[in-house]
Design a protein around this nucleic acid. Structure first.
Lengths: 162, 162
DNA sequence: TATTGTTATACTCTATAACTATA
DNA sequence: TATAGTTATAGAGTATAACAATA
């Protein structure tokens, strides 16, 4: 979420005197709140992942490859809802950084299995530890019960879609 | 640099026709689930809003103007986390469709107050009714209690960000 | 000097069509 | 005929700098 103007700085008189904008209807919508929460969490994610030079999508791809040795580009596409053409440059960059490697698929000569290199495994492991800590640290206003409830309800929402 | 898992090792991801990718770590993250839920809900939103020719952002802007007569572009920018330059074309299109009008601001000649026209008020009202029904209908797998809990926890997440 | 609305622009993200080599 | 990976490209979405009018 791009920084909304902090209301701390004293602005024009009429602005201060004006009642806050009424956004009550939007604030009652799941989509509106889910998007804002996602943007907020992703903002913190980007800060903490900067040392690893990993965006959200880079971390997701690297993590799935680390946890699923030999996964194909097509499987990544389905798992992350990224269209195949948009995955090409992504995978190529990780490969050029020496984090992953492509190897021939044993049963399908069209496909290629993706594997993390030793450097990739190491980087993913460190990054995963940082991400895991974000869940319990940066979102400290949620108890563990609330965190699990939140995830359960979110999954219920997107699994119930037609 | 050697691959951590050589291709000669037993394959995990492509063994059979039901390639169940292990995404367990990502699925335990709030950001991942919030983004997927938002995308799912927005997908349904777009379908149902097609008759009104309104995208999510169009509906949001039109709704805030309808609920806040005389709101300025700057206030919309802050309320929706949209940068001022990106709001210009948005507002202009709604104006060209005859849904909103600009009027001089009473106390600040730099600013312009935004107001819905009669056509705008009518369209927004119909669209809002459809959106409200989506919350209780398309997300029918959630009880009203769960829906309110979900929204409360989501707000807690993005309000607790630094 | 600061703010509102604006233009121009660039960069990212996402989407579609079409090609190749395999199946 | 269908699928995996790829290329090229178009369209959204999002970002910064800078300007004129006004505060």
């Amino acid at each position: 979420m791009p920084a909304a103007q902090p209301p701390s700085a004293p602005a024009l008189a009429w602005t201060d005197a004006s009642p806050a904008v009424n956004a009550s209807f939007l604030e009652g919508l799941i989509g509106y709140n889910a998007r804002r929460a996602a943007l907020a969490v992703i903002g913190v994610f980007l800060e903490r992942m900067a040392p690893f030079d990993l965006r959200v999508v880079d971390f997701s791809v690297l993590t799935l490859i680390a946890h699923n040795p030999g996964i194909t580009s097509r499987q990544l596409s389905a798992a992350l809802a990224i269209l195949p053409p948009n995955l090409v440059g992504l995978v190529r960059q990780l490969e050029e950084r020496g984090l992953i490697e492509k190897h021939p698929h044993p049963h399908d000569r069209r496909a290629q299995g993706l594997y993390v290199t030793e450097a990739g495994r190491s980087l993913q492991s460190e990054a995963q530890a940082v991400v895991a800590s974000l869940e319990t640290e940066a979102i400290t206003h949620l108890t563990e019960d609330e965190r699990q409830t939140l995830i359960r309800l979110l999954r219920k929402v997107y699994h119930s879609q037609p």
